[in-house]
């Protein structure tokens, strides 16, 4: 893995190290399918906004750059929302408010400001994609852990993402599992994130 990619996926991971974008990370990670849906949408948005910001780089000036980023990010997310509504209608209905809320994911603003506004188009696209992927992997991991602990299942409701194929993805891991309720409630998200951050720190130290 090149240093560029490794930095974005692991060493400087947006969720585990920079602790950015916690709102969607904590709110939508109560099942793998929800996490996966939002993860894909976030990677898309981040790649696209980075690309657009890099394209208008010659126009940016100090006073209005933030307004321009907001304008671009909000438009891209709104467009994405329309496309999801059209082509993944049921998933769109499930993710609901969290799609427009991608706008408020500060990772996107952070990458526009710190990277895309200063680098070439191709590098910005790569940066957006891999930063997004790093965030997505953490989101999906938390989703999986919480779903296993909370429901004793994995890929519940996967048909929303994968159509009929999804029904066969759904696995019940334990029979008669009572459910560890706190894992799917908001505090569970904090606990799981804390454990992941601790593991990441431990590994980096060695």
């Amino acid at each position: 893995m090149s240093g560029f990619i490794r930095k974005r996926l692991i060493d400087d991971n947006a969720a585990l190290v920079q602790l950015l974008g916690l709102c969607p990370l904590l709110a939508v990670s109560n099942s793998v399918v929800n996490a996966l849906g939002l993860a894909i949408a976030t990677v898309f948005t981040l790649t696209l906004t980075n690309a657009l910001v890099a394209l208008i780089k010659p126009l940016l000036s100090k006073e209005i750059r933030i307004s321009l980023f907001v304008l671009i990010i909000a438009s891209v997310v709104t467009a994405l929302e329309m496309f999801m509504n059209a082509y993944f209608h049921e998933l769109y209905l499930v993710l609901g408010i969290f799609i427009p809320l991608i706008v408020t994911n500060c990772i996107i603003m952070a990458r526009a400001e710190a990277f895309a506004s200063k680098n070439s188009l191709w590098l910005s696209i790569k940066d957006g994609f891999f930063t997004g992927l790093g965030f997505a992997l953490v989101l999906i991991t938390i989703g999986a852990i919480r779903e296993i602990l909370g429901n004793g299942s994995l890929f519940n409701q996967a048909h929303l993402l994968f159509g009929d194929l999804g029904h066969s993805l759904h696995v019940k891991l334990f029979d008669n599992y009572q459910g560890f309720l706190i894992a799917i409630l908001p505090p569970g998200a904090f606990f799981v994130l804390a454990v992941l951050v601790a593991i990441k720190n431990k590994i980096s130290k060695n």
Partner: peptide, 20 residues
């Protein structure tokens, strides 16, 4: 610059709306 970028993003939204 604000006007140009607003115009471009509005165009993006109009096209998306039209396509979807």
């Amino acid at each position: 610059v604000l006007a140009i970028v607003t115009f471009l993003t509005s165009a993006l939204l109009m096209v998306s709306e039209d396509l979807t």
